[in-house]
Design a binder for these strands. Structure first.
Lengths: 184, 184
DNA sequence: CGATATTACTTTAGAGTTAAAAGATTGCGA
DNA sequence: TCGCAATCTTTTAACTCTAAAGTAATATCG
């Protein structure tokens, strides 16, 4: 096998060597033709950052609001749709499978944060919407959530943030178009 | 409240915010200072990209190798450590909790991909290492995995990839340092 | 020496995850 | 109108995930 790809020892972040803790799964490739692996390297970096931040957000949501991240995501979608959304649409928007939405909705409903309604004339459809309590709770969570992110990224200047945002847009488009094509 | 949390619809591209959510003015009223949300926006974008790619990698690993992503990650760590790793170290490196590593190792072991050994003189310790079959299997998976990423990001030029890689390094350092500090 | 930490792993309980199958309901073409 | 396809949600099975408690084995200190 040519590609000898070796996962780097987590702690040794090629950037900065901060203490030790919860190691990081950033992978590095030690290969002569390093240029060939830019995609892999970038992917591992994004994965690593996302895991670290998710972990932290998850922890804080749990500690401060007794909520989980998927629940927060689901509520976020409902927050901007006063009329509520059908479960299937919710599934699409949150990128969570149908079956999963059922369970999430069950828990949120039993906590009094959302309600299920069989609206429309179509009895197959179920619409979920935030209760008053749900809206208030979410509003508080969203404020905290936003502040956490600002805090976590506080050492990065706005210009860099904007730059990454723009460039990652290209990555997103590339990935998305590949997925769509392969569906043919 | 400053709520303004206009969650972009996840799956759809959040750069071009097409959908026009009517909703109450109250909700939208807030902040004219959109610039304050660069962190939130970037976070949502990274989360979105990561979800899409993970989803696809997971799907392909399942279809072509009957393996899961966490299993792949665990094997990746063992691949470069011929001598094997103790479960605790594996947990640290993969950012997976101890209990979870136990289950993952159970499954990999029963599939004949790894073996557990009670090495050392310390009988509390268990070392996991890839079997011959495990090494061969992982080598094939790793090659495919790398190719998939190259394919998915193929529309992005190397310069952009390198640029993002570099800039996200700063994000990672910022986030990491905040976490360590808060541990005090 | 022996009680008490500490360390390493496993177990448990509650959530989330996916894919696939099962249940309802509705729509549509012959 | 009847039957079958399409749509929407729930169920199921296997896996992953976290936090917290449990079980060994080893270390430490009085």
């Amino acid at each position: 096998m040519t590609a000898s790809l070796f996962w780097s020892s987590p702690v040794s972040d090629n950037s900065l060597d901060v203490a030790a803790p919860p190691a990081d799964l950033e992978i590095i490739v030690n290969d002569a033709r390093d240029g060939q692996k830019a995609q892999l390297r970038l992917w591992l970096r994004m994965l690593s950052i996302t895991k670290i931040i998710s972990h932290e957000i998850r922890r804080r949501l749990r500690n401060e609001f007794q909520a989980t991240l998927p629940q927060f995501d689901l509520m976020a979608q409902l927050y901007r749709e006063r009329e509520g959304l059908r479960l299937g649409e919710l599934s699409r928007r949150t990128m969570v499978t149908n079956g999963n939405v059922t369970g999430l909705a069950d828990r949120l409903e039993s906590d009094g944060l959302i309600v299920r309604q069989s609206a429309d004339g179509d009895r197959r459809v179920t619409v979920a919407k935030l209760t008053r309590h749900g809206r208030e709770t979410f509003a508080r969570m969203a404020r905290a959530h936003e502040a956490w992110l600002r805090e976590l990224m506080s050492e990065v200047d706005d210009k860099t943030l904007a730059q990454i945002f723009g460039a990652t847009g290209r990555v997103k488009r590339s990935v998305s178009s590949r997925l769509i094509k392969s569906e043919d």
